[in-house]
Design a protein around this nucleic acid. Sequence first.
DNA 1: CAAGTGTAAATTGTCTACAATTTGAGATCG
DNA 2: CGATCTCAAATTGTAGACAATTTACACTTG
Lengths: 239, 239
Amino acid sequence: MAVASRLQSGTGEAGNVVSLPETIPYFLADRIKAGIIRWRYPPGSSLRETDLAAEYGASRGPVREALRILELQGLVIHAPRRGFKVKEYTTDDLRHLYRLRAQLESEVIDALSTKDVSSLCDVLDRTNAVMRAFAIRRDLEGYFSTNIEFHQLMIDSTESSVLRTILHQVNAMSLPVRFLLLSNEFSGRADYEYHHEITQAIRARNFKLARRMTVSHITSNLTRVTVAYAEALEKQQER
Amino acid sequence: MAVASRLQSGTGEAGNVVSLPETIPYFLADRIKAGIIRWRYPPGSSLRETDLAAEYGASRGPVREALRILELQGLVIHAPRRGFKVKEYTTDDLRHLYRLRAQLESEVIDALSTKDVSSLCDVLDRTNAVMRAFAIRRDLEGYFSTNIEFHQLMIDSTESSVLRTILHQVNAMSLPVRFLLLSNEFSGRADYEYHHEITQAIRARNFKLARRMTVSHITSNLTRVTVAYAEALEKQQER
DNA sequence: CAAGTGTAAATTGTCTACAATTTGAGATCG
DNA sequence: CGATCTCAAATTGTAGACAATTTACACTTG
């Protein structure tokens, strides 16, 4: 019941626009997701049903459901009679993850070529403007979730439910590592510059260019990410 | 308990080697999966928890879990307070699905280039021989599940857990449509011929060739699949 | 007769209690 | 002193009952 009262609250704090928390498990999934992304539940740590139930004032049933939903998003893994753990990735996995992400978002852009893109671009531009504002204000959390929202919008523009499903998953998997970059996010070339150029290319219907830029946007972060992730894992194991 | 007694039985009948049914939900997931693949639960039909619980002699809890597991595999979709439905795909979705599958299995082959492949190829050859035997005996079910096993083996050869996860999913999604081809499976060029050539190419470490052949193997089925799927859906709606 | 409304049945959501399994600490034995 | 065994505590798995919501159908009403 501690949970039930908050159910109406629209968008979760995970920077997650897709799952509408109409029911307790979805609400819990969003909260736990936020916890995983922010390393409150670090990779490899076990998520005990009883603990989570107590923490959020729900019972174990919905917690299990929530964890199953997160498994769907690739953030958590379940082993029979051994419970749920926060999924952990090797640096090799990260490489594959990013390659896949780049490849699939390219697909999305390709699929745009048969559609009217102006309304999509308007939304993307607006989101990007918000993101820039957060950057100027040095609001890291806002920056982070707007960044995610940009990519989410891109993903949701595809008609293909297969692509959407898979990309949501791949995207979700990368969130914890992306969060790591947050602290030094404003070094180097800003994401919103990439975003802006990509949007422009799409609006000009230069999909080839948009594709190339998306790939370089995503892969440009890869090396930074792998280093940061390895460091974070190490720091984690000291405790 | 009608279920509990059968729990030991190793591999499920869905032609599914990956999920070890150590616990009731996994067992149920396997059975329901088999039902979906064989169109006993056709696309779009709703999977009522109570019905399934009664059908398999379990209670609703495990059934829900099972359905959640199948959602993970992209075979089922859940809407809050509206229950689970067998996922249905448009022909456009199928196109994307197959393209993705081809792309990702190519990735797997690429990843092999840094590894020793002889033991893998041995297993693949053996599986392929079994498949050929089933073909000669005109054992469609055996042929089907061995075919799946071949691809499963390929998928599982990757170190990258990301690729494995996603490919399992993409693979699972395509099972119901692949089942449709079963009746006229032995027309045209046999799958095991493709498989054999692919295996040979891999053994010869000609990964470029193996890649090309995998793509053509998978996409060669696409048109047949889309037609068969559309027909099957239509026939379904007549009822 | 069409459209909207209300109510009962069907269905999903949640909780609590109990069963089965795993885990880990301490005792026992080589 | 190290390895193994045993047993209790912690944790997950399952069942069944009850609550909340949706759906379908009959009913009213314009």
